[in-house]
Amino acid sequence: MSEKFEPKIVAFVCTYCTYAGADLAGTSRLKYAPNVRMVRLPCTGRISPMFILKALQKGADGILISGCHPGDCHFTHGNYHARRRWMVFRSLLDFIGIPTDRVKYSWISAAEGVKFAELINTITEEIRALGPFTQYHGLIEETQSQASL
């Protein structure tokens, strides 16, 4: 690792809004921090809390969940499910001692390339300020099977 701590952020995004928004940031040649890695899913409704835990376990320092704005979901209401699930999961995270400010939640539409770039920069700085996430690093060896839950 370089002298400066470079956080690793895993983003779970829906393909219709945020992934398209990220593509727009690309086609507009906006510059943003290279710390984010995207996982493309059909809908935020598809995002299981287990994905977030898995990413944290694998060494991610921060997580971003992003999808269509409320009311704009391509699948009519997958993002509402995601939002409700996140509200519940957040309390669980809190309970098990994982700082909830490592998991960010945002709505980004396919038109919001600028917002996407700004968001990535902001959360990169926020996660950088929080420092490396080490709580789970030891656990990775214990759960070798990649697919096990």
């Binding site: 059909p42 809908c43 409704g45 598809r46 299981s48 994905f51 997958g78 839950l149």
Partner: peptide, 25 residues
């Protein structure tokens, strides 16, 4: 959309092309 997959308590439903295993991998 896969919303049902995430809802499933027994991991019985999966979404072709975006399976649990694939995303974990």
């Amino acid at each position: 959309c896969g919303t049902c997959v995430t809802f499933c308590r027994s991991n019985s439903i999966d979404l072709a092309g975006f399976t649990e295993k694939q995303i974990f991998a």
